[in-house]
Amino acid sequence: MLAIGLSALAAGIVLAVLGVASPRTMRRRLAAKVAALEAYGRTTVSSGPEDQATDGLPPLLARLRAVATVLSPSTVTTSLARRLDVAGNPASWTVEKVLAAKGLGLFATAAVGLLLGLSSPVSALGFAGLGGLAGFFLPDLLLYNTGGKRQAVIRKELPDTLDMLTVCVEAGLGFDAAVAQVGHETKGPLAAEFLRMLHETQLGQSRVETLRALADRTTVAELRAFASALVQAAELGVPTGRVLREQAKEMRVKQRQLAEEKAQKLPVKILFPLMFCIFPALFVVVLGPAAISMFQSFQ
C-alpha cells in the first residue's frame, strides 16, 4: 500500500509539472494576464477627472461641482490643478472640492442677493445675478491670493536658500544630497518644493524632468530662471557648482534691485494718503484757530 501511495503521488507530481509546463497552459495563463492588464488599462483611462470627480464628495456637493463644471471653460480642471500647485496644494483642497465650492458659492450668494432685493423684481434679479457671480469666482480669488502669498515667500527665501545650496555643493556634496540637506534644514514653501523635487527624483524621474516640473509649479521668475539654468547645465555638462555660484550672485543682485525699486515707489504710494488723510487734519489744526478768529472779528 505504501508503494502504491508513493507511486500515485509521484505520478500526480509529474502530471502537474507537465500541465504547468505545457504550451497550452502557458498560453492560457498569459492570455488571462493580458486580459487583466487590458481591463485595468480601460478602467484607468475611463476613470478620468470627470469620472472621479464625485469620489469623496456628498451627492449634493457632487451636483454643485457638476453645475460649476458646466459653467466653467473646458480647461478648468487643468487650470485649477496648476493654481493648486502654485498655492502649494493646501490640505483638503482638491480640484473637485474647489469646483463644488464654486457651485455652492453661486447658489448661496445668489439666494442672499435675492433676499436683499425683495423690494422689486428688477432689484432682486440684479442682486441675485451680482451675488451669484461674486460667489462663483470667490474660490478662484481665494486660491489666487493663497498662491500669490506663497510665491512672495518663495521669492524672499530664494537668495538665502541658493547660498546654502551653493555652499553644500562646493563642500563636496552631490546635488541631490545638497537639496536634501537644504530641504531638511530650512522651513517654508521653497524647502517643500525642493523636497518634492527630491522625492520625484527618487521615484525615477530624471533631474531635467524634476527641474522643469519645479519651474511649472511656480510663478517666480527668478526660480524659473534658476531651474532653466540647471537644466542647461545638465544637458551641456557644465559643473553644477559653478552654475549655482553664478545664480546665487545674480539672485543677490536682483534682490537688491527689487529693494531699490520698492524704495523708489514709496513716495508715489504715500502721496495719496498724505493728501487725503494727513493734510486735512494738519490744516484743521493749523488754520482752525485762525479761521475762528477771523469769523469772530467779522461778527
Score class of each variant (00 low, 15 high):
1 M>D: 07
4 I>Y: 06
5 G>F: 11
6 L>P: 02
8 A>N: 03
9 L>W: 13
10 A>E: 00
13 I>A: 12
13 I>C: 08
18 L>C: 09
19 G>L: 15
19 G>I: 14
24 R>L: 14
27 R>M: 09
27 R>N: 08
36 A>Q: 09
36 A>I: 05
39 A>N: 05
47 S>L: 14
48 G>D: 15
49 P>D: 10
49 P>H: 07
49 P>L: 06
50 E>H: 09
50 E>Y: 06
52 Q>Y: 02
55 D>E: 14
56 G>E: 07
57 L>P: 08
59 P>V: 09
59 P>K: 15
60 L>Q: 11
61 L>S: 10
61 L>D: 14
64 L>C: 05
70 V>S: 15
71 L>V: 01
75 T>C: 09
75 T>K: 09
76 V>M: 08
76 V>L: 07
84 L>Y: 02
89 N>C: 07
92 S>E: 14
93 W>S: 05
98 V>P: 00
104 L>C: 08
106 L>W: 06
106 L>Y: 03
109 T>W: 11
109 T>S: 11
111 A>S: 09
121 P>C: 01
121 P>Y: 07
121 P>M: 05
126 G>C: 07
127 F>K: 03
128 A>V: 03
128 A>E: 03
133 L>S: 08
136 F>V: 08
138 L>Q: 04
139 P>I: 05
141 L>K: 07
146 T>W: 03
146 T>L: 13
148 G>F: 10
148 G>Y: 13
148 G>D: 05
151 Q>M: 10
154 I>T: 00
158 L>I: 05
161 T>V: 02
164 M>Y: 02
169 V>C: 04
172 G>V: 01
176 D>T: 13
180 A>N: 11
182 V>S: 00
197 M>Q: 08
197 M>W: 06
197 M>E: 02
200 E>M: 06
202 Q>A: 10
210 T>D: 03
212 R>H: 06
213 A>M: 06
216 D>T: 09
217 R>Y: 03
217 R>L: 04
220 V>R: 04
223 L>Y: 02
223 L>E: 01
224 R>S: 06
226 F>M: 04
228 S>K: 12
230 L>V: 08
231 V>T: 12
232 Q>R: 10
232 Q>M: 10
232 Q>D: 13
237 G>L: 03
239 P>I: 06
241 G>E: 07
241 G>S: 09
242 R>H: 11
248 A>I: 00
249 K>S: 14
254 K>Y: 01
255 Q>V: 00
257 Q>F: 11
261 E>P: 04
263 A>E: 00
265 K>Y: 10
266 L>C: 06
270 I>Y: 02
270 I>H: 01
272 F>L: 14
275 M>T: 13
275 M>W: 05
275 M>A: 15
278 I>Q: 02
278 I>D: 00
278 I>R: 01
291 A>M: 15
295 F>S: 14
299 Q>L: 12
